[in-house]
Design a protein around this nucleic acid. Structure first.
Lengths: 222, 222
DNA sequence: ACTTATTTTTAGACAAATCTAAATTTAAAT
DNA sequence: ATTTAAATTTAGATTTGTCTAAAAATAAGT
């Protein structure tokens, strides 16, 4: 069965939102997709007929297993293309998202499989997010939010909370990115800002909001 | 300015048809795009407003210089992606067309330029068609139709007339493809079929229609 | 040249995806 | 528990790209 780009974008949005919130509300979706709630309702009915989701009026929506399969296929394509753009075509990791949003809708199955093979079956995209394999499986990272990292534990940034240009801008300015190694030095309970230290750089303070947008995994320092 | 996939497909179709026929007729376009003439007229009016073509009612259509620029950009993307699919992802040259039809509408300029760089600025796609550079320039092949090739002149297939699956099927069966070296042995004026000889293979006869779908360039046999 | 056939255009309708404005259902508040 | 507020859905309209059927313009045939 074939789906339009618009339908795929709805499925993808529901997939991402239901990771956190369980059932996804019409208003959440409207915000995520920059459309009006009325439009969401129309499309939810349409996708329900196509068996991609379980939806009851006024009660929110979840993906069916069909829908989840489709979502994972789209996420797989998105992340593989991001990996390709950064590692093969030498894009910066902060400039691949928009292009991947287009490339993820290319339908050829063979294209995805050959691309995966060419890239060497990567497990994580340039933002640190895991890439689903052809069966939709992906490895789980035990990553924690930077705000929860205990002081003096060496850790490495492995994922960012969103791809908004605003976030990417401040990260670039503060020289933070995927792979950056750091330690938390102090936590200020007044505004929940934290002081972090990166090698060869003076310690800097980052806001609660920024810290919450960064995910890290602890690393052994040998 | 941004154009829809549909609009780009119209521009591309007009570009290809006007190579041969000069002014392009509504019916030709309808056949090429598998739509009805009425739909063509509607779209021609729309694209005229957007300054992409010169169109007068009942008199056919040509691309404006704006339109030609766009067409060349699309053709460039199509052929670069075909090259990529064959040379990087190891697709067969006869299975890349449909995928490239999708990829050619990805809009990122940087993507095209980085892809071109990565591929080493190729001059011809896997079907032997020239790839426009970033300025829209392409090298001209002095290729002639196989039907016009004089007997006993060594030549090499460098282009096929269309990408229809029917044509690709018969070419595969007869072991003909881009790069195939051959000579014409006899021409039968009865049905304009010709007998050709490839190295290490018995001579075969091919129909007028098939010969007209193949373009060759002469090669020195040293 | 006049009639016939072909091509092209217009007019009106339809499906997809969206919108605004109004109505309905659920949730919150006193 | 009743009212108020918020979220969601319905109803009707709009845009894009398409269609069919009918009208208009061009081309062809004798």
């Amino acid at each position: 069965m074939h789906f339009t780009t618009t339908e795929e974008n709805y499925i993808k949005a529901i997939y991402h939102l239901q990771q956190e919130t369980g059932n996804v509300s019409t208003n959440e979706l409207a915000a995520e997709l920059s459309t009006k709630p009325a439009s969401i309702t129309d499309m939810l009915k349409k996708l329900t007929v196509k068996k991609l989701l379980r939806y009851e009026r006024y009660k929110g929506v979840r993906l069916s297993s069909e829908g989840e399969k489709l979502a994972l296929a789209i996420v797989r394509k998105h992340r593989l293309w991001e990996y390709f753009l950064v590692n093969t075509l030498e894009f910066g990791w902060d400039e691949v998202h928009e292009v991947a949003e287009e490339l993820e809708h290319i339908s050829s199955k063979k294209l995805v499989e050959q691309l995966d093979l060419f890239l060497g079956y990567p497990k994580f995209d340039p933002h640190g997010d895991p890439i689903p394999d052809s069966q939709g499986r992906m490895v789980m990272q035990q990553q924690i939010n930077l705000i929860d990292l205990a002081p003096d534990i060496p850790a490495e940034v492995c994922s960012v909370g969103s791809q908004s240009t605003e976030l990417l801008e401040i990260l670039k300015h503060k020289q933070l990115g995927i792979g950056t190694k750091l330690q938390v030095k102090r936590k200020f309970s007044f505004d929940h800002s934290i002081e972090i230290k990166m090698k060869n750089l003076p310690a800097i303070t980052i806001s609660q909001q920024l810290a919450q947008s960064l995910f890290v995994k602890t690393i052994s320092n040998d």
